[in-house]
Design a binder for these strands. Sequence first.
DNA 1: GCAAAAGTGTTGAGCGTACACCCATGC
DNA 2: GCATGGGTGTACGCTCAACACTTTTGC
Lengths: 229, 229
Amino acid sequence: MDYRPEDILPSISTDNIIFGLDNRKLKVLLIRRNIEPFLGNWALPGGFVLYNEDLDMSARRTLQNMTGMSNVYMEQVYTFGAVNRFPDRRVVTVAYYALINYTLDNLKAGPDASDINWFDILELPDLVFDHQHILETTLEFLRAKVRTEPIGFELLPQKFTLTELQGLYEAVLGTVFDTRNFRKKILKMNLLMPLDETQVGVAHRAARLYSFNKETYHKLKDKGFTFEL
Amino acid sequence: MDYRPEDILPSISTDNIIFGLDNRKLKVLLIRRNIEPFLGNWALPGGFVLYNEDLDMSARRTLQNMTGMSNVYMEQVYTFGAVNRFPDRRVVTVAYYALINYTLDNLKAGPDASDINWFDILELPDLVFDHQHILETTLEFLRAKVRTEPIGFELLPQKFTLTELQGLYEAVLGTVFDTRNFRKKILKMNLLMPLDETQVGVAHRAARLYSFNKETYHKLKDKGFTFEL
DNA sequence: GCAAAAGTGTTGAGCGTACACCCATGC
DNA sequence: GCATGGGTGTACGCTCAACACTTTTGC
């Protein structure tokens, strides 16, 4: 997709940090640039903001172009505007992160990129510009947020086991939880609906499936409840 | 102070939410615009970002111009970029808040304003553009932050009493604390240095003065301590 | 039957909360 | 001496952390 120069705000971009969970590993989507500067290097996906779109819309547009997904949890993190963060000219970038269901389907690199790939946050390649810094800042932000708001569920399929949930938090926070205590704590909140379903096709005792109940959360929140892990 | 048009990034501004504590009331500095649009209305102080300054520098420049203060606690909050937030053209603004020692001295309205004044956050005038929204967002941000990092001290003079400290938290958070419990909690953290000084000129028992020890805090923080109120 | 993960309770320590009275000072 | 805020301790309930074994299922 190309845009006419007169439709583009020249000095403002949005960059996306798109997180996905792959088998207890937190991963982030990166693209390989096929334009100068830094042709061939890995970068956060992003693009310039258009005159007729909000910042949020700009970030969602990028995400949609790359993954085909539109109804996704996204949040603004921070704005990076050091004078020399971008070569040759001044570009201020607003960072957004997204939590999506990990997938390998439908990934498109987009017009400015030759490749797109998931990277484990513990094994990142070198990134262009200040993207390493942006990613680190966002990870800190996510780690703080995930502890105090029930957003982690966005990384899981609708139906999940308690072990998967625990693995998610361990991957994001880089810690280990005591299984019994974790279950007690999360179940006492009453945010999870136990389903009459269990895992299928596993070579061991099948775990019960749960789903997160957003409505219940909002009701509880209105009454003063705060999620805290 | 005027700037040449070619030195100015046309589409990006910073806006400052400057907080001060006046006798157990949380106040914010506003200016009265003396330019169109919305001439004569109250607004957050701010201005366009220059090509040769970082976003942080831009916010600090505004603050310095208005208060003469330079060594001040400041932090970026959020970036507001709705298409129609600013009339006639597209302006994205990055909000910063500052915590300063309340003062009436040296306040200067600046070139685009005819007046400058402190307002109680509970008695705000109508504000231009989306400044009301920006202010509310920033207040929420501050309330969350003040609970988990010892930044409240920035609003107090170097030497303060425990009652003043308690009053500060009550003003910012809009709550009431139990005096005994508040003192126990804050003193147990070992962040306050009791001084061999007391209040002077008060018509009651003079309270002991304390000062906040930033070094101690950073040492404790490195060891895993987290401030929590 | 064995490998692999699911699932489950108790105890002790520390923390948060609730609560009321005497003290020092200035006028 | 009185008005004003300064300063202090205890007891209870709750939450958090530590800790190990049995159950179910597929192969």
